[in-house]
Simulated scan of single mutants.
Amino acid sequence: MKFDKPVIGGPCWTELGTSDLEGAKRFYTELFGWRPETDPRQEAGGYTVAHLGDAAVAALSPLYQETQPVAWNVSFAVADADDAARRVAEAGGTVVLGPMDVFDAGRFAVALDPAGAAFQLWQARGFQGAGLFNAPGTLGWVELATREPDRARDFYTTVFGWSANASQWYTQWAVGGEDFGGMADMGDRFPPEVPAHWMPYFAVADVDATAEVAREAGGDVVVAPASVPDGPRIAVLRDPQGAAFGVHRAGEEG
């Protein structure tokens, strides 16, 4: 990402919904050096914030609904969650939860784009989002995989005001002229049962070494480390509970 703090319209937070919270804590602590802190309040439902130093960088939480998949989710910062939810619906998306207040931290909603990719809206109050981006172990990029790239481009530029810089193979999203993520056409590269989805990429010092640590910690390497032409070195990994995420070499944020 070209910015180093949450900005309106850009990704501000990422959180994992997992079937094994304690296992996820162990895995990501070993992989990224995170320090997880679980909110002790009963009404928080086990929500756990991962830190690097003093900075909150991501969250891990139990699954709150039977239909909720094990997956990483991406939140985008908005000035007004209710207004953003209205724009989502008007642009052809669906709001599936909220908007609702989260203690005094902010206002939150979960939405689906027209192709079914889930994402979250976050109106900050006491909590702005990640305190660190692009450093090893923190969020550095977000990517939408979809079978309907033209429809997605229209939807997200309408809802968030993003610009889209498209090549033959890839589209890069930007807010205020600052790139923060991309979009890939799923085509026939994904099994038909895999839905459209957003996926976070975390910066790491060494992609190859991180992939090996993930494997040794019980995860899988879905896409082996490779260098993108004129781009970063990346890999796609899967944690022991089945959640996929990407890693890229720090300093190569797109």
Rank of each mutant, 00 (worst) to 15 (best):
M1C: 07
K2R: 14
K2L: 15
K5G: 09
G9I: 13
G9L: 12
T14C: 13
T18I: 10
S19T: 12
D20H: 02
D20R: 07
L21A: 13
E22F: 10
K25Y: 13
F27P: 02
E30T: 05
L31R: 08
W34S: 15
W34M: 11
W34D: 14
P36V: 04
E37H: 03
T38R: 01
P40R: 02
R41V: 09
A44K: 00
Y47G: 06
V49I: 14
H51M: 04
A56Y: 06
A56Q: 13
A59F: 00
S61C: 05
N73K: 02
F76I: 11
A77N: 02
D83N: 01
R86Q: 07
R87H: 06
R87T: 05
V88A: 09
A89N: 08
G93H: 01
T94F: 04
P99H: 06
P99M: 08
P99E: 12
V102Y: 00
F103S: 08
A105K: 00
A105V: 00
R107C: 12
F108D: 01
F108H: 08
F108R: 06
F119R: 04
L121P: 14
L121N: 10
W122P: 01
W122I: 15
A124D: 15
R125G: 08
R125E: 15
G126M: 05
F127V: 01
G129N: 03
A130S: 09
A130M: 04
G131N: 05
L132I: 08
L132M: 11
F133A: 10
F133W: 14
F133N: 06
N134F: 00
P136N: 11
T138E: 11
L139A: 13
G140N: 11
W141P: 00
E143F: 08
L144Y: 02
A145G: 15
R147C: 09
P149R: 03
R151I: 15
R151Y: 12
A152L: 09
R153E: 15
F155D: 12
T158L: 11
W162G: 09
S163P: 06
A164Q: 03
N165W: 05
N165P: 03
Y170S: 09
V175W: 00
G176C: 03
G177F: 01
E178C: 02
D185S: 14
D185Y: 12
R189C: 11
R189K: 07
V194N: 07
P195W: 15
P195K: 05
H197F: 15
Y201Q: 05
A203I: 06
A205Q: 13
A209M: 07
A209D: 06
A214V: 14
R215T: 07
G218F: 05
A224W: 02
P225E: 00
S227H: 07
V228T: 13
L237G: 04
Q241D: 13
Q241Y: 02
G242A: 13
A244Y: 03
F245T: 04
V247K: 04
R249I: 12
A250V: 09
E252Q: 15
E253C: 00
G254N: 13
